[in-house]
């Protein structure tokens, strides 16, 4: 049993973290919860409005539309990024020349700012001058408006987001791949397993813990996506890429409705929590920790 003196010392050592948690996380979260029940324009004092903000959310078509846009973005981004990161990790887990260079090349977009990425993406997806339409032209396909097309803007944003983020997830998979005992592959080869069998029955289960992590992180990333759309489309064309966090930002910081924005933040938090819990529950069926 720890003495009182030990406990005091322990509390003292933990106090910087506790102060950070209380002042910069717990308190703002509680303040946000309070604000979500108020009409707060950031200029005047907040006014208690009960459940008005949440009731308004139910009938706010633009909010549901932003949630739909975010859902489509997640459905395209999460599987594409996860599969591509795994495939790249397997490809770059070989003992061939220039491997560090190649791994570095895939990681460069991860550390680049969204402003830089937006410029590079424009050189590919600009409807007039971009290389994507040049390539389509070789196959006789009409040029597309990409980020200016309501139908294509979310898939295009998802493709760019995958390109930017895949390097990071690839590194996670690389670490997991290197932790798989080599003996398993050797045993499979002795039993006549081909490359596909080894990938399907050893690699995929072997990295399933990391796959779970990548899925959770990617889902949260998409539900919180802001900077990319703010820089690349500002929610356009005509709101087709208005994701929920951008919508929340607009309400809070452009339209003086911080109380309403706080309600959106809480609903988004509930959605993220729900998705994470579902993924946690599902992982028991397919994740192998060994």
């Amino acid at each position: 049993m720890a003495s009182l003196r030990d406990r005091l010392w322990a509390t003292l050592f933990a106090s910087p973290y506790l102060a950070h948690l209380i002042l910069l996380t717990a308190w703002p979260v509680l303040a946000l919860a309070y604000l979500s029940f108020t009409d707060y324009d950031t200029v005047s004092d907040p006014e208690w409005v009960g459940l008005d903000n949440y009731t308004r959310l139910l009938g706010d078509e633009a909010f549901w539309s932003s949630l739909g846009n975010t859902g489509v973005f997640a459905l395209l981004y999460v599987p594409a990024q996860t599969v591509l990161a795994l495939v790249l990790a397997v490809a770059l887990n070989q003992k061939i020349r220039f491997i560090p260079l190649l791994r570095g090349a895939y990681f460069v977009p991860v550390v680049s700012s969204w402003v830089v990425i937006a410029y590079v993406a424009d050189s590919v997806f600009n409807p007039r001058t971009g290389s994507a339409n040049t390539v389509l032209g070789w196959f006789g396909i009409d040029p597309q408006a990409w980020l200016n097309s309501p139908a294509l803007v979310i898939p295009t944003l998802a493709a760019v987001a995958v390109w930017k983020g895949v390097g990071y997830m690839m590194v996670l998979f690389l670490a997991a791949l290197q932790a798989i005992p080599q003996e398993r592959y050797e045993a499979a080869m002795v039993d006549g397993g081909n490359a596909w069998h080894r990938f399907r029955h050893i690699t995929v289960p072997g990295v399933s813990g990391t796959t779970f992590l990548v899925l959770v992180l990617s889902t949260i990333t998409t539900l919180q996506a802001f900077e990319q759309v703010y820089v690349m489309t500002d929610g356009g064309p005509s709101g087709a890429s208005e994701l929920t966090v951008l919508y929340m930002y607009r309400q809070g910081f452009q339209f003086f409705q911080l109380g309403y924005a706080a309600a959106i933040a809480w609903v988004l938090f509930a959605i993220i929590l729900l998705f994470t819990l579902v993924q946690l529950w599902l992982q028991r069926r397919w994740v192998h920790y060994a």
Partner: peptide, 11 residues
């Protein structure tokens, strides 16, 4: 009359 709030207090 509206009370001064936690958020305004923080600010």
């Amino acid at each position: 009359m509206r009370a001064r709030t936690p958020a305004a207090l923080i600010a």
